[in-house]
Design a protein around this nucleic acid. Structure first.
Length: 1092
RNA sequence: GCCGGAGUGGCGGAACUGGCAGACGCGACGGAUUCAAAAUCCGUUGGGGCUCACACCCCGUGCAGGUUCGAUUCCUGUCUCCGGCACCA
């Protein structure tokens, strides 16, 4: 710990009164109430239909993010969010809500398995052990979870339903017209009836390059098509499907990883290298939901940053796809190259094309002899691109590499022949794996063009360039002569920028500039004074900006205005500047016999060119996404098995619902092989793998047909995709969630049928708190599953989580050398004072600076919650974590500060309990009339109101500050010597408003007050509004915005009365020195400001 | 590079919608209690000036401007730090 000086309170009260609030007493109180709550089932929340359920109460579903029970146990970061949700839940219960506040374990997945491998013990054992540790630690905090709803993803009772949901996805397809998922049987029925043409799913990426299949190939009537084709067509629509994919294979982990689990070409877990490898994998067609996943974000109460991150991850962009004709070796045109672009308006500037190294056209280039193709170079480049891992590929995005394919294309807008290059800066996975390169208006194309000397042609001008071009073209002889042209141009540009002028205003503006300058100024020689100070209002700040513009013009390096004009005419301005212009502007050099974009704004130019392309049949509007389908299989052991079997032909069949769960076989050897040649681990369980159609309930096969089970397992995300639903009805044996429970906890209504239209709010969980590390992955996957279940009628809301909140990271102190190297906390001494610390590294003796850093073992700054609770108790721990600062902010753990909250509880205890006898110290009710008690009474109402608001705003630190103020006031106004501070009625209410924050001490006081039922379930005290207002208020009196005096006036005094009192103040009168004030501003109940 | 968020005393932080900057806690300093210490309690505590003192004055919310009677809060520019994304055409 950073502060060895912090005193630790004695754990045994060997000195001092017997009933002092020490760590030992706190522990005794806390464990007593934790046991009491357990035994009395205080926080068990009945469901609709259960005995004791009160449907008249509003519901509040408050969820903590599913913890991963690691072997290391709880970390101080965990209880931060949990304490926050606990406070709100306790508050809501007291406010009369039915509160669903559950906890469970996300127990499958790589970390648990890696840990098991390290320790050599079976993951089931290590995971169960870790869960026990987590549960024990959590219980010690006194969180008000309904533990009867606890489960782990590894429970057969749970993953049975995870498999069931997988089958729901497997047996569903996305109907693009209706924008909803539907049962696959509907699709088959439509195919069979002929109401839907039998063809491959045009959106199915996995069939995009299937031989002989185009988007429009119709296979014919259902009955005329063979079984295999029918199957593969139907499969192309399934939301869960198998595909041979280039996946991120991590040899070290022995598994494929989702794109999201790969960071900078390395595995998110462990940081091992990842290579691209084709593998047969289960996929989830999340791309079908891309639009809805973006659109529905708008209705959610989520942090802006998280919504942005999700939207960017999905990456919707609007543009066009365009077919560029390709020249065959004999110069005829039989093929086209399709590209995607967001800037179709720049097509006149497309001077070359680029295809990804994996593009199918590469094979064409190699197969068809073209004298221009350097076959060796192309092959070498492709081989290199293939061998390059993503790490290398992303490491140097600065230098572009590529090779000419030998193929020429035709720019359909200009009619020019342009070369097709192969380069790895174009990615096969996005768009069509091919681009039209517009070097003048795309940074990457620009770099590439420079590298390989490809032509660069301006087709869009920014406002400034447009103005320059206009000036160059329209300058008078006088304006273009000698050196003065730059001065004149500078004046014009200054005016153009200050008025944000569009191109059609250029003539007017130029006329204005001419009107304000003596035309004979040519002799001035371009000095800075030429246009300055001419004082015309319309020209504005011309004088001050002229200098800057002159510099800009000089830096362009044009010898004369004619040079400048020529550069525009040739379209080489971008090249001259050496930087691509990728912003919006106005088109130039963009016209052919049929269409002209010249002068159009970028937005208008896009529309015009798309219309033209559309009419020619060579292009169309197109929306593209970065989001790709979700890779859903892993080759590891510790995950949910797929409910899928294969027959001898290799066709997949779903295991029948009645045969679920497909249990994980008990493997002895669960270590993955570190391999380039992937083999799922479950393939080792030979007996488990082999079964019969009857045993798994596949009716489409003969009962005794031998089938083998799928040996991949589901990814770690699977279990956390729907756990919030299971909590609603955790012990349901016949369904994944019962209808009444789902309807009540997700929508607040008890209903038995699926509800349409969409309820508001659109998400079911009322408050979801967790770290922002899950901003994209977990939250996106869970939303996707939820939407599928919604479409299929299994749940009532289109979104799972209405309100989301991220708690900040709890950091710790560490030390940093001048060379940025970090030094562990135990290697540093403070050789200075507290005020002026000088931190010295013990080994080198150099001075280091204190910084905040993530807690880590290597920095020795990890805080173990068990230790803190042992030293202070969990009430103090809870208060400290909530008092550190705003919940969403990341903040440093400072052990030294905990004592402040401990003292607060001690002061409260001493105020109300006789430390010698342990009995209550209460002021007699008759003393309630005294002035001191009246003041406490008023403060108590105000504190109650403040605490209530603070909890609603999740601003716990200010709520606790208010409680401290109340206790301090009660302690000092009545005081220990003058007798007890609070009456019974006052202490009751204090216990109640403290209860959400420090529930144990609150229960203890509550029971000492004679109550036999739980404080935690008692009604929240009412606030008397009249107690919140004072009859008199003190107002500051400002003169010219500075406080010069204070006045006390009745709270309801009108402005005139307040003004009179303020002006009568001697200090104010002195400053006015007899003159009447120009103006007096009275802000009711706030302040008075007098303007002289 | 792009997108978010944040810069306030020695430290963590507070300040409702533009209205008394620094609530509350820590630390520090002084005092009470104590044989002494711990614990506890009371007082002081943004910086500077001036005064015996009370009072009073000036400066102050990363930096430079602007709007306003009045700006931590709104606007423009700029610096720094943190988080996320990153060859997505």
């Amino acid at each position: 710990m950073s502060d060895a000086a912090t005193p630790t309170p004695s754990r045994t009260p060997d000195s001092g009164p017997a009933h002092r609030y020490t760590a030992a007493l706190a522990e005794a109180i806390e464990t007593r109430w934790q046991t009491w709550w357990d035994e009395n089932r205080t926080f068990v929340q009945p469901n609709p239909g259960d005995p004791g359920f009160d449907g008249a109460r509003p519901k509040f579903y408050c969820l903590d993010m599913f913890p991963y029970p690691s072997g290391a146990g709880l970390h101080v970061g965990h209880p931060e969010g949990y304490t926050a949700t606990d406070i709100i839940c306790r508050f809501r219960r007291m406010k009369g809500f039915n509160v669903l506040h559950p906890m469970g374990w996300d127990a499958y997945g790589l970390p648990a398995e890696q840990y098991a491998i390290q320790t050599g013990v079976h993951p089931a054992i290590t995971t169960r052990r870790a869960i026990d540790t987590f549960r024990r630690q959590l219980k010690r905090f006194g969180f008000s979870y309904d533990w009867t709803r606890e489960f782990a993803t590894i429970d057969e009772d749970y993953y049975r339903w995870t498999q069931w949901i997988f089958l729901r996805l497997y047996n569903a397809w996305y109907d693009e017209e209706r924008r909803t998922a539907r049962p696959i049987d509907d699709l088959i029925a439509e195919f069979r009836a002929g109401t839907r043409p039998l063809r491959y799913n045009p959106k199915a990426a996995e069939y995009a390059h299937a031989p002989g299949v185009t988007a429009n190939t119709i296979a014919g009537p259902w009955d005329s098509v063979d079984y295999e084709t029918r199957r593969s067509i139907v499969d192309s629509y399934r939301l869960a499907y198998v595909s041979e994919q280039l996946v991120n294979w991590c040899p070290k982990l022995g598994t494929a990883l989702a794109n999201e689990e790969v960071i900078d070409g390395r595995s998110e877990r462990g940081g091992y290298p990842v290579v691209r490898k084709p593998l047969r994998q289960w996929m989830m067609r999340i791309t079908a939901y891309a639009d809805r996943l973006i659109d529905d974000l708008a209705g959610l109460d989520w942090p802006e940053s998280t919504r942005t991150q999700q939207a960017e991850w999905i990456g919707r962009s609007e543009g066009a796809e365009i077919d560029f004709p390709l020249l065959d070796p004999d110069k005829s045109i039989t093929r086209t190259l399709r590209v995607y672009t967001t800037r179709p308006d720049t097509i006149f500037g497309a001077t070359y094309m680029v295809i990804a190294p994996e593009h199918p056209l590469v094979a064409t280039a190699l197969e068809e002899a073209r004298p221009e193709t350097d076959i060796d170079a192309v092959e070498a480049y492709i081989a290199r691109a293939k061998a390059r891992t993503d790490v290398d590929r992303q490491a140097d995005t600065k230098t572009k590499t590529g090779v000419f394919s030998g193929i020429m294309a035709v720019n359909p807008a200009t009619g020019m022949e342009i070369p097709v290059w192969i380069a790895d800066y174009v990615l096969m996975g996005y768009g069509h794996g091919a681009i039209m390169a517009v070097p003048a208006h795309d940074e990457r194309d620009f770099e590439f063009a420079r590298q390989f000397n490809l032509p660069i042609r301006d087709v869009v001008l920014s406002r400034i360039h447009w103005a320059m071009a206009y000036f160059a073209k329209n300058a008078t002889d006088d304006e273009r002569t000698g050196d003065t042209w730059s001065t004149h141009l500078a004046d014009f540009l200054g005016l153009v920028t200050s008025t944000n002028a569009e191109p059609d205003h250029m003539p007017t503006l130029l006329a204005r500039v001419r009107a304000t300058r003596p035309v004979v100024g040519a002799a001035g020689g371009g000095g800075a004074g030429a246009g300055a100070g001419s004082g015309d209002a319309g020209v504005g700040k011309r004088g001050s900006t002229q200098g800057e513009w002159l510099e800009t013009i000089a830096s362009m390096g044009f010898a004369s205005l004619d040079d400048l004009r020529n550069a525009f005419a040739e379209g080489t301005i971008v090249e001259r500047f050496g930087i691509a212009y990728s912003g919006a502007g106005h088109a130039i050099n963009s016209a052919n016999a049929e269409v002209s974009l010249d002068g159009l704004s970028t937005a208008d130019a896009k529309q015009r060119i798309i219309a033209w392309l559309d009419q020619k049949g060579i292009g169309r509007k197109k929306i593209n996404y970065k989001l790709r389908d979700w890779l859903f299989s892993r080759q590891r052991y510790w995950g949910e098995p797929f409910p899928i079997v294969y027959d001898e032909r290799g066709f997949h069949f779903p295991v029948h619902e009645s045969k679920l769960p497909v249990t994980l076989p008990p493997l002895e050897d669960f270590k993955p092989e570190e391999s380039e040649d992937p083999q799922p681990l479950l393939a080792k369980a030979k007996d488990w793998m082999r079964t019969t159609a009857a045993q798994v309930g596949v009716a489409d096969l003969p009962a005794d047909a031998i089938v083998r089970r799928e040996t991949n397992t589901m990814p770690g995300w699977a279990g956390s995709c729907w756990y919030y639903l299971r909590y609603c009805d955790a012990n349901n044996q016949s369904r994944f969630i019962g209808k009444p429970a789902e309807s009540y906890w997700m929508t607040g209504r008890v209903a038995t049928s699926h509800e349409r239209p969409i309820p508001t709010p659109i998400g079911g969980v009322d408050l979801y708190i967790g770290g922002n590390e899950h901003a994209v992955l977990h939250l996106l996957y869970a939303r996707f599953w939820h939407k599928v279940l919604f479409d299929l009628g299994d749940v009532s809301t289109p979104e799972p989580f209405q309100k989301l909140f991220h708690q900040g990271l709890i950091t710790s102190y560490a030390y940093q050398r001048a060379d940025k190297g970090l030094v562990a906390v135990d290697m540093v001494d403070n050789k200075g004072t507290e005020e002026k610390p000088r931190y010295i590294a013990r080994d080198t003796g150099e001075e280091v600076t204190q910084i905040t850093a993530k807690m880590s073992k290597s920095l020795k700054n990890v805080v173990n919650p068990d230790d803190v609770i042992a030293d202070y108790g969990s009430d103090t721990f809870r208060l400290y974590e909530m008092y550190m600062g705003p919940l969403e902010a990341s903040k440093p753990w400072n052990t030294r500060d905990i004592t402040g909250l401990f003292r607060f509880l001690q002061r409260l205890w001493r105020l109300t309990v006789n430390e010698e006898t342990g009995s209550l110290r209460l002021a007699p009710d008759t003393s309630a009339d005294s002035n001191a008690h009246a003041q406490i009474e008023k403060l108590l109402h105000r504190t109650t109101a403040k605490v209530e608001q603070a909890i609603e705003k999740l601003s716990f630190n200010t709520g606790i500050a208010a409680l401290i103020e109340l206790v301090n006031a009660a302690t000092s106004s009545v005081g220990a010597e003058n007798g007890p501070g609070l009456t019974r009625a006052q202490l009751e209410r204090l216990a109640l408003i403290l209860c959400p924050f420090a529930p144990h001490i609150a229960e203890e006081l509550w029971s000492k007050l004679g109550h036999t039922s739980a404080c935690s379930l008692a009604p929240w005290p009412a606030v008397d509004e009249s107690m919140l207002r004072d009859s008199e208020v003190e107002l500051p009196v400002q003169v010219q915005g500075k406080v010069r005096a204070r006045i006390t006036v009745p709270a309801d005094a009108d402005d005139a009365a307040v003004t009179a009192v303020a002006l009568a103040e001697p200090k104010v009168a002195e400053l006015l020195s007899g003159k009447p004030p120009k103006k007096v501003i009275v802000v009711k109940g706030r302040m008075v400001n007098i303007v002289l």
